[in-house]
Amino acid sequence: MAWFKRTQKGIQTPTEDKKDVPKGLWYKSPTGKIVESKELEQNYYVSPEDDYHVRIGSEEYFEILFDDNKFKELDKNLTSKDPLKFEDSKKYVDRLKEAQKKTGLKDAVRTAVGKSKGKDLVVACMDFRFIGGSMGSVVGEKIARAAAYALEHKTPFMMISKSGGARMMEAAYSLMQLAKTSAKLAQLDDAKIPYISLCTDPTTGGTTASFAMLGDINISEPGALIGFAGPRVVRDTTGKELPEGFQSAEFVQEHGFLDFISHRKNLKDNVNKYIDLILNQHLR
């Protein structure tokens, strides 16, 4: 039974001295491609081999869009209450505290103003890490206030959506945000102030049913899931098999709901080209 015995002594490291690979050093894309986290960051959080756009949040988008990552955050300390005293398996107030502690965010959207290619730009960006990017009263209020700031200062407004839809713990209060944000965006339209909507993975539910599809120009990142109900719900409701690529950004663009799809590395250039075009400024 000699083959069960070690015949030569190799490197023998005591168990207590072994080192694990630090978490976050590598990233594995859904197609199995492995990329070093630092390389991923330098490539705009896009896997270089398969072009997979990794989900990112407001911190990363602000860094991509604002010159030298300089911006002023708007309504920074606005937080949700619990008007319905919602209780399920866990109290809503406890969920909020847990999400705030885990993410370092106050709620599922951050809004800011800064320079992008030398021009003022107001950006509202959703964070999926905060209760699935769900849209509660604070999310709607911050988006409405950001649009109001853009209206007052005659500054282009950009919305980056990443959401599972309405926040069930706020029920009707959540649904009211669809009307509120849509009304404020209508005021931007009346004032001829550009509104750019960027749909990222995923953009679903009440977000899609309101501000995400109301842009003067609607754009997306490659491969993003965009729809109202999820594919499984649609399939079970209709009783039919769905076409290949259903609700992907490419499918949605083919059916006329998107103007174009932008690779993340070109996002800043493409957004500013559109702003220059609509405002009849010199293209950079």
Score class of each variant (00 low, 15 high):
M176V: 03
I261L: 04
A108F: 13
I131E: 13
A172I: 04
D51M: 05
E39C: 08
T207S: 13
N280R: 02
T200K: 10
G114I: 07
E63R: 15
K184V: 00
P202Q: 08
V123H: 09
A144I: 01
R235I: 02
S80Q: 09
N218M: 01
F228V: 15
T111N: 03
E49S: 14
C199H: 08
M126C: 14
L279S: 00
G118W: 10
T238V: 10
G118P: 09
E170H: 00
V46G: 11
V93Y: 08
L78W: 10
Q247P: 01
S58P: 07
Q187K: 06
Y274E: 07
E49K: 15
F246V: 01
L214I: 01
V123R: 09
Y27G: 09
T13G: 08
K91M: 09
I193W: 02
S210P: 04
K142V: 04
W3K: 10
A171F: 04
Y52R: 09
P243F: 00
T111L: 04
K81T: 15
S137T: 14
P22S: 04
A166C: 06
E87I: 13
P22R: 05
A148G: 09
I193R: 00
E16A: 03
C199I: 10
T31D: 10
E241H: 11
I217R: 09
T111W: 02
I278Q: 07
L40A: 11
P222K: 10
K184R: 00
